[in-house]
Amino acid sequence: MTYDAILSVENVTMQFGGVVAVNNLNLHVQRGEIVALIGPNGAGKTTAFNCITGVYEPTNGQIRFNDQVIISNHPKGKMKKLYSGENYGMYSKVKNPTPDKVTRLGIARTFQNIRLFKTQTVFDNVLIAKHMRAKQNVFSATLRLSYAEEKRMRQETYALLEEQNLLHLKDEMASNLPYGLQRRLEIARALATQPQLLLLDEPAAGMNPQETQELTAFIHSIRDKYQLSILMIEHHMDLVMEISERIYVLDFGSLIAEGTPEEIQNNQHVIDAYLGVSEDA
């Protein structure tokens, strides 16, 4: 285990009833690294994301962020008998923060199926993400006593939209944007929460090859500009191989391989389970 890991997922198992969706997942992301999580449909990739961001309480295991345990759980109640994962009894602490607390710590995410605030403008979508870190309460905000804070939020939103080349669209309704731009806006909104770690759930889904190319450059640029570490789920292999420094491969909830893109491309398990053999070979 390296010491500069910003995120370490340790022995995380997620079991729904009798179904083990994620089995004993161990994964870590170094500071400033781009890591991809790949695998066939239903392998448990998004479930792993949901465990990290607090949407699900993992059945067993713990997650550390910046060397602090942020999530920890062990089988309780009915799950004690039902539990069929590994490492039973290894953890005794229970810590299950709600997603907003995880976001506050500095983990932001995007969603597989875009979840923008549809009835609101592009500007307001990003502005909402600024709410969390504003120093105000409901009285000072209503009576405009914290107007300086509101002004700061607006200026930061403005600056962020300008950086992301979305400023000309700021008064558009979010639902009226073309698909590619909606994805960009979702990433911009996640950046507005000032994260250290960004989780991207299929950022290139539904994009054509050219847009995917642009996305590669875009992900690199935001990583450098905002000093981010990035963990992403993706099915576009060109993108994954080009962009990621390390890759984890999940199949049926279990990790079957990890390594650099070259290692993964030549790993027989991965080829059998997911990549397949190209027809000319």
């Binding site: 506050r104 995410r109 605030f117």
Partner: peptide, 9 residues
């Protein structure tokens, strides 16, 4: 869900 992911309790 999105509101929660944006840090709104």
């Amino acid at each position: 869900i999105a509101a929660e992911a944006m840090g709104i309790n």
